[in-house]
Design a protein around this nucleic acid. Structure first.
Lengths: 187, 187
DNA sequence: CTAATCCTTTAACATATGATAAATAATTAC
DNA sequence: GTAATTATTTATCATATGTTAAAGGATTAG
């Protein structure tokens, strides 16, 4: 949990009481590669923090497995399209490396917002940054070639090739695996 | 201002005191078509609500004018990539139809968050929904053809063709104007 | 009202990526 | 350790979108 609160303090430092309140609604999950942390069809009521390991959010589009996003050590992962709307999620979370994850009960977390405005502020800021990242990602998708996007991803996340199968990287980039192979072959 | 508080109440109803506090940091701007509501290069410190009219956020990419988003009546528009980071914005807001706009001073708004947690909550929820919309937009960009994206836009916003030049719609969709013309010609 | 400017379409050609299929390579299960 | 499965590459062909250029329409300024 120490790492989690270190991560939080980059956004909004918390009082000891607030930290304790959060600790009570967290649990630690150890989970192996290729397991599903969360499956399709349920309303998402958990926010995860990755202590150790790698995960992805994915869904099926016309029967094809599409990776929406990756999450690595020391980061938050959540299916916001369900968490923030209350709709059942069409997406699942899959573990890509043996992982240790903190699961934060979002239902209880949202209740804590009433007692601890500092906690509401913390998560407001976390998701504001995530929102900005998503806005910037659109620019990358629309105005860079697949090759540029691949190179950008590798330089942002140099170890991704050791952690994630290429097929997931291809769908994340919005191209087929065959195209990605072609791009990689050029060099 | 009535319309603004009606809009707010869909997200989080406010107390009379909170409404009054917000009213004090708002101003009404009447602005003509083709004017710039905000220009490039400054840190964004305003959130806008469109009472009447149409606007777009745009930027230049390799010298080409790109529309990031449109905003229509009864909606919020803000350059979040600057507002939430404090970085100067590479983007500008242009008015596309004669408009009446409520300008909310964000610096003062963020101060109100300390006194009125209900106001912080309101804007948290507004931007959570905007975040979800953006996540969903990525899916549209990556996994639909330009023609499908055009048709989806027209059915979501049937009046857009009367309000917005096609060249802006093309760059919003991530295609050239020539491509958009071709798509429109098919029918 | 006219000229100038800006917006939209059309055409011809170039290119990145998709689709399908088959061959290797790597990983996993027993 | 071997067989079975899964992941990746390579090849060929098809197609959507990009690029450039030019012409026709629409708007705007004076």
């Amino acid at each position: 949990m120490t790492l989690l609160f270190q991560y939080f303090s980059k956004y909004n430092p918390l009082s000891k009481e607030a930290e304790n309140a959060i600790t009570e609604i967290c649990s630690i999950v150890k989970i192996k590669k290729n397991q599903e942390l969360q499956t399709f069809g349920h309303t998402c009521k958990t926010i995860y923090y990755i202590n150790k390991g790698t995960a992805r959010i994915y869904y099926y589009k016309d029967g094809i497995d599409i990776t929406e996003s990756f999450a690595f050590e020391n980061n938050i992962i959540a299916r916001v399209e369900s968490l923030f709307t209350g709709n059942p999620s069409r997406k699942a979370i899959q573990i890509l490396e043996d992982s240790e994850i903190v699961a934060i009960n979002a239902t209880q977390l949202f209740k804590l917002y009433d007692t601890y405005p500092e906690i509401e502020r913390l998560f407001r800021k976390i998701f504001e940054v995530a929102y900005v990242d998503t806005v910037n990602r659109i620019e990358g998708i629309q105005f860079h070639s697949a090759e540029e996007r691949y190179n950008a991803l590798i330089s942002e996340e140099p170890n991704i090739l050791k952690k994630v199968p290429l097929k997931h990287i291809a769908s994340y980039l919005g191209i087929t695996q065959v195209s990605l192979s072609r791009i990689r072959a050029i060099k």
